[in-house]
Design a protein around this nucleic acid. Structure first.
Length: 575
DNA sequence: GCCGTTTTCGGCCCGACTGTTTTCAGTCG
């Protein structure tokens, strides 16, 4: 049973949780959490790194001990240290930590005093009123625990970025309209462009007498008010989305924006840099002793630690600070850099508009070319095309290209990759297409090796151009199928194929880490809308957000090429 | 448990809010 980086990260996180409940040295706990993050963020599998003789202690946060533990886990599948901890602290206590308001100290008390190990036991004890007399607990705590157990059951924890935006934008407008309010900006993971967000962090600058705090908690959409102070409040909207608002003075705006944009891991790294320079960074500014030396803008904060501005999408402690120090930050791609869209559907399969309508909509968005990629016959549910129907479409595209100006339509297809890795169209018709987009739409539960080989076999077709939505995941709905994505990226590099970054809000597939890895391997990414209607070209912005999080520059993106440039590339024939 | 242009020992990011503890610990972000 191969051990993946994720397995190791999970073990380290479990160790951290249990050690925390055991009241271990907090810095030791942090060391495990740091190591888990490092392991998760690696581009390569640790098992490969070991076999090529890589010294793990050169990784950040991995020393002699954790390196030995990684090697142990890789060879045996488990860590004796964790097994030993389990004898003292039951694993189920981790579930209790997930209840808001319960941290390691309280969980420890629950376990020691009442032998509570599971959520069910906790709920029972709380409803019997057994918690209120424990040290550090009271009636309110007991009540809150009951409410939070119920809330956790009923609500979805994260929201799609696109959904969060629908709530964020009107709320920002509401706050801006309150007297005395200056700036209102959504920071946090939302500003970093993450594909899903757990909550909204809203930063406000306002005059001291502004009623913004009151105006916030009285907002129409607010369901529950969790806490409210002079500078900070937390609410839940009626849809379950948590919103934190912070109010700061204008001279702290940049420092606060920086601070609340995170990520936490990134902020810690930068604060450590500040510390070395005898500076302290908090949400109010950058301080030397008691004196504020920066904080009005984010730029000013970065300058005090000798760094250039780092775009929010990069602030994940994945090497951006080192890159900033070496002046090698990427020049991130923007929406304007896209010249075309290589994944577009029409009503011939499951879209809702004709070819011409889609082409004109793309042109209106500033694009110069699109590829029409309807499904193939194997995908019956989407009315996939058979070779004859595709031939008719090809003829229609030829006629339209004669007529249309300012936009070129490329002939293509989103071809199903069958279970054995064959493509769902004969070569006789594939050879007539300008490019071939291929995708897995069935048999998601094959074993890792079968799924990987299936896709690699498809890539070996001479007509294969690009793998669409490479992992098959649907955010918050369906996990990625089990596939060796590192291998897929390698093979794409060897065969001169491309990978898609699908911009549908529910997909955003490829994810940011794999985008970065593809870039490092020289594999170009195509940022496509997968539009099924003329308004869906807007989705490209979401793809751009994701691409930026994956460190992609214009040169890393296939469809930032002009049409003549695209024609010169491998695998695009433009018959 | 990690780490080193103050250090191989002694540090390790920082502050707001809540509830209960009447002076502060725990939790959260």
């Amino acid at each position: 049973m191969p051990v993946h980086n994720e397995d190791i990260a999970v073990i380290f996180e479990e160790m951290a949780d249990l050690l925390e409940i055991e009241n271990a040295n907090p810095f030791r706990v942090r060391a495990y959490r740091n190591a888990a993050r490092t392991v998760r963020g690696l581009g390569r599998e640790l098992s490969d790194m070991i076999s090529t003789g890589y010294d793990l202690t050169s990784l950040p946060g991995i020393g002699k001990d954790l390196s030995a533990k990684i090697i142990e886990i890789l060879s045996s599948g488990h860590a004796r240290a964790l097994d030993k901890l389990h004898k003292e602290v039951p694993a189920s206590l981790e579930d209790l930590l997930k209840i808001p308001g319960l941290g390691p100290k309280k969980v420890r008390v629950l376990f020691q005093e009442l032998h509570i190990k599971t959520l069910r036991q906790l709920e029972k004890a709380a409803s019997k009123g057994l918690l209120r007399n424990l040290p550090g607990f009271g009636i309110k705590t007991e009540q809150q625990i009951l409410e939070n157990i119920a809330a956790q059951r009923s609500t979805e924890k994260r929201f799609l970025y696109s959904v969060a935006r629908r709530y964020a934008e009107p709320l920002v407008a509401h706050l801006k309209a309150i007297a005395g309010v200056n700036e209102v900006v959504v920071a946090g993971s939302y500003r970093r462009g993450r594909e899903t967000v757990g909550d909204l962090d809203i930063l406000v600058t306002a005059r001291a007498d502004s009623p913004v705090m009151q105006g916030f908690i009285e907002y129409d959409e607010v369901g529950d008010v969790v806490s409210k102070g002079k500078t900070r409040a937390t609410v839940f909207l009626r849809n379950g989305l948590q919103v934190d608002m912070r109010v700061v003075e204008p001279h702290s705006y940049g420092a606060a924006l920086y601070y609340f944009t995170g990520s936490k891991a990134h902020n810690i790294q930068v604060r450590r840099l500040a510390q070395k320079r005898g500076l302290k960074i908090n949400e109010y500014g950058v301080f030397r002793n008691e004196k504020r030396i920066a904080g009005k803008t984010e730029d000013s904060v970065f300058r005090t630690v000798g760094l250039p501005f780092i775009p929010p999408e990069l602030r994940e402690a994945r090497g951006e600070i080192e890159a900033a120090q070496n002046n090698s930050l990427p020049d991130l791609i923007g929406l304007d850099d896209l010249q075309g869209d290589l994944h577009v559907h029409t009503r011939a399969s499951d879209g809702n508009a004709g070819i011409e309508e889609m082409a004109l909509a793309a042109k209106a968005c500033g694009l110069r070319y699109i590829a029409i990629t309807d499904h193939t016959r194997n995908l019956g549910i989407a009315h996939g095309l058979d070779p004859e129907q595709l031939q008719q479409q090809i003829d229609e595209i030829d006629r339209l290209n004669e007529k249309l100006r300012g936009i070129t339509i490329l002939k293509s297809s989103e071809v199903d990759i069958l279970e054995d890795g064959r493509l769902d169209l004969p070569n006789s018709i594939l050879s007539q297409l300008d490019l071939v987009v291929a995708a897995v739409h069935s048999r998601f539960h094959l074993s890792r090796s079968k799924q990987t080989n299936r896709i690699i076999r498809a890539m070996e077709s001479k007509y294969f151009t690009m793998l669409a939505h490479p992992s098959g995941r649907l955010l918050l709905e369906r996990d990625a199928y089990d596939v060796d994505m590192l291998r897929i990226i390698e093979v794409a590099g060897e065969r001169g194929c491309y990978l898609e970054l699908n911009s549908q809000p529910l997909r955003l597939d490829l994810n940011d880490s794999y985008c970065k890895l593809a870039k490092e391997q020289g594999v170009l990414i195509s940022i496509n809308s997968d539009s099924h209607s003329p308004i869906q070209f807007d989705y490209l912005q979401g793809g751009i957000n994701q691409a930026r999080r994956g460190w992609l520059e214009k040169k890393d993106v296939l469809n930032s090429a002009s049409l003549p440039q695209l024609q010169k590339l491998n695998k695009v024939t433009m018959g």
